[in-house]
């Protein structure tokens, strides 16, 4: 019974949220289009890529991809640190 109430309430909140979103914003008609128009008009000539997503991620927003690569590198370093080979005097801490 309690589970049903929780489920019903969360569904209600989710549908209200999505309904407001769907009624407020119309699909395919964004309010600000200056940046999109610039990318679509000049991106092909300025970066030489036919794929505009790649031209944005690797050229116009190159710093984003740099941060993303650094995050992946740090994640791998963290995994390597957790699963590293233990030294002789080093022990797993139990509990």
């Amino acid at each position: 019974m309690k589970k049903m109430i929780v489920l019903f309430t969360s569904l209600l909140i989710l549908s209200a949220f999505l309904g407001v979103m769907a009624l407020t914003f119309t699909f395919g008609a964004p309010k600000m289009t200056d940046m999109d128009d610039y990318f679509l008009r000049f991106g092909q000539e300025q970066t030489g890529t036919n794929n505009q997503c790649t031209s944005v991620t690797f050229d116009f927003r190159g710093f984003d991809t740099l941060g993303e690569s650094t995050v992946l590198f740090c994640a791998v370093i963290g995994v390597a640190l957790i699963f590293r080979k233990m030294q002789a005097g080093e022990e797993y801490e139990d509990e």
Partner: peptide, 18 residues
């Protein structure tokens, strides 16, 4: 190789440093 604006066939030797 420079790429013109508009629909084109696509060439592998384009894209600058991308």
């Amino acid at each position: 190789i420079p790429v013109p604006y508009g629909i084109n066939a696509g060439e592998l030797n384009t894209g600058g440093f991308v």
